[in-house]
Amino acid sequence: MPSLMPITGFVALYIFMLAAFAGWVIIGHVPAILHTPLMSGSNFVHGIVVVGGLYALLNASSTTEQAIGFFAVLLGAGNAAGGYAVTDRMLAMFQTSEHKPKAAKSRHPKAHHPKKA
């Protein structure tokens, strides 16, 4: 990417280090009950790869590159959209005895039961 802000060796390593640290800390605090949605959620987050696919495809200058670039965007979009859909569905189901999120009600009428506190 002809960037305004070229990322050279050590700057890249610093970015990687801080990002890895952030990921470690964020996950470290997640209760086990959320592990599956979280795995799915982080699966969605790396769907950002679709942006790189778009860059590669828009800059394609041969049929081969176009074909592979198309493939990259196709798969990346699948990762992002699918990841969002399943994560959102899972998270909408979480509820306490007292609270019922509205989102769960409209989307999953079957999953809903009257509850005693």
Partner: peptide
């Protein structure tokens, strides 16, 4: 992999998102 390709494309958003997931996934 996303983080590394983000480095090649010089796209910090890919680098950060990819590496966060890489580290988080390893811990998980």
């Amino acid at each position: 992999a996303v983080g590394l390709e983000g480095f090649v494309l010089e796209n910090p958003a890919l680098m950060i998102a990819g590496m966060v997931v890489g580290a988080a996934g390893m811990l998980l």
